[in-house]
Amino acid sequence: MTAVVISELMREHINRLAASGKRSDGRVFDEPRSLTVHKNYIKTAEGSARVQLGNTDVLVGVKIDVGEPYADTPNQGVLTTSAELIPMASPNFESGPPSPTAIELARVVDRGIRETKTVNTEKLCITPKEKVWIMFIDIHALDYDGNLFDAASYGALSALSCAIVPASKIGKADYPLPLEHWPISVTSAKIGSSIVVDPNLDEERIADARLTVTTDENGDVRAMQKGLKGSFNLEEVRGAIRTSQRVGRTLREVIQQG
């Protein structure tokens, strides 16, 4: 209940700030929080990254194992993504089976990576129809201060970009995961009539609607997801796409160099 009361006071505060073009943490509307990327954070994973987007802190591990391909893609590796919102990360997260929020998070991150053909899955085939490499992307939220969608997808891309296919397990030489594209998701939140990029927790709590747009290095749109109970008009959607392209260019470099 406390959280709700604070959020009502916060709502007024943030709305007032937004009306005068300001944000509670001093950013301008289309400015994301600073992103730091620490790749190869976990030795036991084939690829990993700890990513901080402002105070939101996410650890992503990629495990790569031998498994069976799907019948309709007999010569392609498999990508699976899951997310855990562990109670450590927020007083509002509870243990138990994955909540709809966690499921949506995992699926939106997965979609961005999958639809951009980030990983060349044909290079992950061992024996067609029988054995392929399976990538398990596990998203672990450690500290939740808003916008897990973007933090998790930067974490996943970073972890994939440094992942090694453990081919020595099957008597071949290890090789880097064949990464071909760099999808960047950028989330915009609508607060009243203002639209802010990379919402922090206070902004996210009072936001009416959320739109995550994933673009590739050409600025093409690869995935989108609208969330929350409010709406966007077409002009606002166009604005969010433009913001995603622009902000994405800067953040892509951070992840490529990280």
Binding site: E115, A223, Q225, K226, S231, F232, L234, I241
Partner: peptide, 18 residues
């Protein structure tokens, strides 16, 4: 004209999305 659901997967240029 409010858009209350929007999802997308695949590959579209901005013009194609429009």
């Amino acid at each position: 004209g409010e858009i209350v659901l929007l999802q997308m997967d695949g590959h579209l240029t901005v013009d194609e999305f429009e």
